[in-house]
Simulated assay, not measured.
Amino acid sequence: MPSTPTASSGSPWSVAPEPVGSAAAAALWRAYYTEVSDRWYELNEGRRTDPAELEREIAADTGAGLTPPGGVLLLARYDGEPAGTAGVRLLDPATAELTRVFVTPGLRGKGGGPVLLTAAEDAARGLGAARIILDTRNDLVEARALYARNGYEEGAPHNSGPYAEHWFSKPLAPRTT
């Protein structure tokens, strides 16, 4: 698992582990959840998320699985400012799950997604995983395209989550030093 920021030299992006309860992580979790929840409700019910439901659901998912020793939350910064997250948690000794992949809307298209995926894959390897899996929804077409561009292959369902409509996986080659 990376203990120092990762990104290519000269990049405005850096990624490092972050406590799930930090102010930056909490703010990005709120932004992520609000966006995906509102998107679902707008598409399916023509409305935004009810504020009470939003608060309840944000509080309910504490990110407990994204803490050592079996997980990590990664926080991306762009020119030093919090700009995105990716979570990795072990499901079994060889399989990690990727979750909470998010880049703030104003910074999308600036390379943060691939930087986060690379850091998440490195973190998964550091946890001992040989493959990484994830699920996503039909309407999150940008996310699906990001995963496909970065070597993730869509396959059979690996869970039965209520919002899981597409399942991806990627084998993780051993770390090179």
Rank of each mutant, 00 (worst) to 15 (best):
T62N: 14
R39Q: 11
I58K: 07
E81H: 08
E42C: 09
A124T: 10
G128E: 08
L54N: 01
G106P: 10
A83W: 01
R77P: 10
T104V: 15
A76M: 00
W40F: 15
L134W: 05
G70D: 13
Y41L: 12
D79W: 07
E53C: 07
A123H: 06
E121G: 03
V103G: 01
R77V: 03
D50I: 00
E121Y: 12
N44A: 12
S37H: 13
A96F: 05
G128T: 02
D92Q: 04
Y33K: 13
P105M: 08
T104D: 02
E53F: 15
A27T: 13
R125T: 14
T49A: 11
A26E: 12
V101I: 14
I133F: 08
A16I: 04
A23P: 10
R100M: 11
P114F: 06
S22C: 05
P105I: 02
Y41K: 05
D135H: 09
W29C: 15
A23I: 03
L74F: 07
P19Y: 02
V88N: 08
K110W: 08
L116N: 06
G70L: 13
R56A: 15
L90S: 12
V36P: 03
R47P: 02
T49Y: 01
A123F: 12
L134R: 04
P93T: 05
A86D: 03
E55M: 10
P17A: 14
V115A: 11
P51Q: 08
V20Y: 11
V101Y: 03
R47M: 07
V15L: 05
W40K: 09
A83I: 00
R89V: 10
A60H: 09
R77A: 14
L66W: 05
G63V: 13
